[in-house]
Amino acid sequence: MRPFSYQRATDPTAAVQALGAAAAANTPLTKATAQPLAGGTTLIDLMKLDVMRPAGIVDINPLAQGWSAIELKGDGLRLGALAKMADVAAHAEIERHYPVIANSLKLAASAQLRNMATLGGNVMQRTRCSYFRDVTYENCNKRNPGSGCAAMDGVNRMHAVLGVSDQCIATYPGDFAQALIALDAMVEITGRSGTRNMPFAELHKAPGSTPDIETTLQPGELISAFSVSGRWPRSVYLKARDRQSYEFALSSAAVALDAQDGTVREARIALGGVATVPWRAREAEALLKGQKFDDGLAQRVADAAFAEARGRRHNSFKIALGKRVVARALQQAVTMEI
């Protein structure tokens, strides 16, 4: 870890000003000299590893008073970005109306981490790619643009099969983001010129030729809230992993259905553990619309979800696994009692 300055932001304006002031043009957010500190569960870790070397930290925890509300109003949901994962996971109304959100949070990380980590920080969690996290590897296009990718032909069991490029195959590690993208959530962003809203699906950027740019967020911008319209009681989050807790997904599926008597009116499917970004399987969803659900259809949907998947030496199993996870999640969603 390298020395850094520490500053507590007492209100949103001060926070975005402190974060924006140091921002240089064309610097990716992840390399910005000032970084926001919320739960700290990713940032501090990466600073200890020397992967992130911010000159200054802006502690935004004082904003929690205004930014951590959990509100169900009308038929929608609004979640403050500084709400703790644990608090949202255990919220009775969220468990009832949005099981996919509650479960994606409950199955993430460990109890200790969920107590510290915030929703906003969680969706911004950076990849667990071992080569990204080990600075003794020069070749990481995410850390050192243009340097190559050590994971491509290295140990890549945990890596992505969807949304990959020839520059980067690092997996987006989180769970909650799959629930958000499945539910067409909006994200509220607070910047120096006020707040703006955009679809959550536009937040993350697939690596393409610029794996160092991970989101559309600019230095000086903070996520202040997430919102979801409608209730999604028929929704599940299914996560396959090596151990029963405190482990990233090898494959996960967030599924939300509007279905009656086995006929699907509308379906939402998002995939985790297999893609470089929170991944919405829209073409697969389309196969379900208006159809009577059966296992054969589930299989076709699952196949469609992974039609574009590309495996590498150690992670090809994720394609078959991911399909079974999608099919099973759909079956669970169709048959769940609400």
Binding site: S110, R128, S130, M158, D242, R243, Q244, S245, Y246, E247
Partner: peptide, 9 residues
Amino acid sequence: DYLLPVNAD
């Protein structure tokens, strides 16, 4: 990343 059992296991 070096996996050991957690309580849930």
